[in-house]
Design a protein around this nucleic acid. Sequence first.
DNA 1: GTGTTTGTTATCAA
DNA 2: CTTGATAACAAACA
Length: 289
Amino acid sequence: MPELPEVETIRRDLEKKILNKKIVQAQVLDKKVASGQELAGVLKNNSFVRLERRGKLLAFALKSGQYLLVHLKMTGQLVYKLKIKYQKSKMIYGGHQISSSDLLVPNKFTRVIFTFSDGSQLFFNDLRRFGYMKIVTKAEKEKIWEKDFGIEPLTKEFKFEKFKELFAKRQVKIKAFLLNQKIVAGIGNIYADEICFCARILPWRKVSGLKKEEIKKLFLCSNSVLKRALKNRGTTFKDFVDGVGKSGKHLNFLNVYGRTGEKCRRCGKIIKKTKHAGRGTHYCPGCQK
DNA sequence: GTGTTTGTTATCAA
DNA sequence: CTTGATAACAAACA
């Protein structure tokens, strides 16, 4: 599940690889995730000049002025590879992973392939086909940037004064609050649980009932949890890989997500799992209040 | 065959 | 109008 740290890891990786390279071909292998006609038409002989991100959404600025929007949703991957030599087709189509940290592409989940003039390629893989690629105008992209997303963590605009105001007259559970992209951009199920653990607050409490100090803790934890995960290049549960096909290193630093039945590292109680806001919700019954 | 996994949105209710 | 809750989507795995 790529969330802000994972998507930002990919953005930074690809920024070093694909900028200003001439795109010679855009192949769409699955109509559900993108329009072949649209992508081929706009991208051929074009190039990416800048890679932007808002929450979990990527926008690749094109030399021609438009943008390629990319959303990875749950199982999307963007993997860049230098020119591939095809030796044994069996190996390529056999499985996805060569080793625990490298990914073989193309594979059966490859939905779109971009080829650059130097022979290198960018693969868009998506097992569940929830993700998409789409061309939009600059105006459309700017409207999405402004209207579809709330404050952006890890930027100057992410200030406590601003964060605090969002809590006013809301009745939702903290979990739903943190998952709402229109409030705070980029938080998904893993980091929502981790942020609540960090703040020692139970995820199903209503935001209206929080004290100022608790809101402050949620604010500080949103920052620290996301920053630390980004530093570790994201969490790989099953599908996430960075821009060159390698796994993230943050999995073993998670405190509650995926640790049901294990001991809390802070107080020793057993981590529990329940459901809130329609999502699996992990927490420590000992030190979260 | 059933239940579970999640990012986002459509839909419905209040 | 807004807010909140829920189902639905897709595919794999236990």
